[in-house]
Design a protein around this nucleic acid. Structure first.
Lengths: 111, 111
DNA sequence: TTGTATTGCAACCAGATAGTTGCTATTCAT
DNA sequence: ATGAATAGCAACTATCTGGTTGCAATACAA
C-alpha cells in the first residue's frame, strides 16, 4: 500500500473521531487534565462509563490515545498528538490541491 | 454565539463530510473536472444519482459545494474552499493547544 | 472473608445514515 | 405530440452509531 493511502486512512479515522462532539469532549478533558481512566472521564462528562469506553476504543484505534496499564487494574488513557498532525497535513495538502486545480480551471477558461 | 463556536460548528461539518470515502470521491471529481451535475458525478462514481444527490446536499449544507442553476433545468455543483480552510485552522489550533497543554503537564511533573 | 471499587463484556434499544427503487415534473428536440 | 434526458421527492431496507442496563471478574482494604 502506498504511503499516501496510509496517511489518508489515518486522516479518515481522525476526521471520524473529531466529527463527534462527545469525542472532542473526551479529548479536551484528556488535554486539560492529563492521562485519565474511563471512570474519571465519566465523572466529568454527561455520559456513562461504558459510553466513554466505546469512544476511547475508537480513539485508541485511531491512535489518538494510548492505554497505559497501572496498579490495581487501573487503565489510564493519554493523548497522542501524532495522528492529529498527520490529519492536519492531509487537510493542508487537500486544500492546496483544490486551490491549485481551481486556479488551473479558471486560467483554462480565461486563456 | 461566540465566533469560536461557529468555527467549531463549521469544522465539525467539514470533518463529517471528509470522514466518508464516497464524499471525498465526490469532492475529488469536482476538483479534477470542475463544476458538475449529479448525473455527471453518478457516471464517474459507483453509486446512483440519488445517493450522490444526498451527499451533495450534505456537502452544500457544510458549505463545501454550491449549486448554480444553469440552462435546461441543469444544476451544477462547484467546490467552495473556504470551509476547508476554516477546518484546517481549527485543527491547527487544536493541535497547538494540545501540545501546549501536554508540555505544561510534563513541566509540572518535572518541576 | 466480606465489602468496595474498578474494568470489561454482552445484550438490547432508538435514531441516524447510506443506499436503492419507483414515481412525477420539467425541458427541449424531433 | 412524442420521446429522451434531467432533477426532485418519497418510501423502503439494511446497517451503523451512540447510549443504556446488567453482569461477571479482578484487586485490594478492612
Amino acid at each position: 500500500m502506498p504511503a499516501t493511502d496510509r496517511v489518508e486512512a489515518v486522516a479518515e479515522q481522525v476526521f471520524v473521531a473529531l466529527a463527534d462532539p462527545r469525542r472532542r469532549g473526551v479529548l479536551a478533558v484528556l488535554a486539560a487534565n492529563g492521562p485519565s481512566t474511563a471512570t474519571d472521564l465519566a465523572d466529568r462528562l454527561p455520559i456513562t462509563r461504558q459510553a466513554i469506553a466505546k469512544h476511547l476504543a475508537l480513539l485508541a484505534d485511531a491512535g489518538l490515545v494510548t492505554a497505559e496499564h497501572g496498579e490495581r487494574r487501573r487503565v489510564r488513557y493519554g493523548l497522542q498528538p501524532a495522528p492529529m498532525q498527520l490529519a492536519q497535513q492531509f487537510l493542508a495538502a487537500l486544500t492546496r490541491d483544490w486551490d491549485h486545480r481551481l486556479d488551473a480551471l479558471k486560467n483554462h477558461l480565461e486563456g
